[in-house]
Amino acid sequence: MSIVRAAEVVVLLCTVYIALGLAFAPFFVWRGVGRIDPAARSAGFGFRLIILPGVAALWPVLLRRWLAGRRPPSERNAHRDAAASRAGQASA
């Protein structure tokens, strides 16, 4: 495959990915964002506009969470994991 052909394939794949993201992003910031994050439910237009480029870029992650109806995930680190394990042992 020539370099031009390879470059065309890369650019085409990126264009398709971004086009899907740009189609998804307005729907998500309008309806979806409040479903996955309660703190966004009554957020204003400025907030929705400012997250739009990121939504277009990371749309598969957000689409999956929106479809699954998930809330923001819990943060994990050594202390939180140890505390959760301890709480689990106590309740068992």
Binding site: V33, I36, D37, A39, A40, F47, I50, I51, P53, G54, A57, L58, V61, L62, R65, P72, P73, S74, E75, R76, N77
Partner: peptide
């Protein structure tokens, strides 16, 4: 740099988790 700028809002911190 675009990806970092686009995910700089606290919404992304909460929804990706800080780590």
């Amino acid at each position: 740099l675009f990806l970092l700028a686009a995910t700089s809002h606290d919404f992304w911190l909460a929804n990706l988790t800080a780590p």
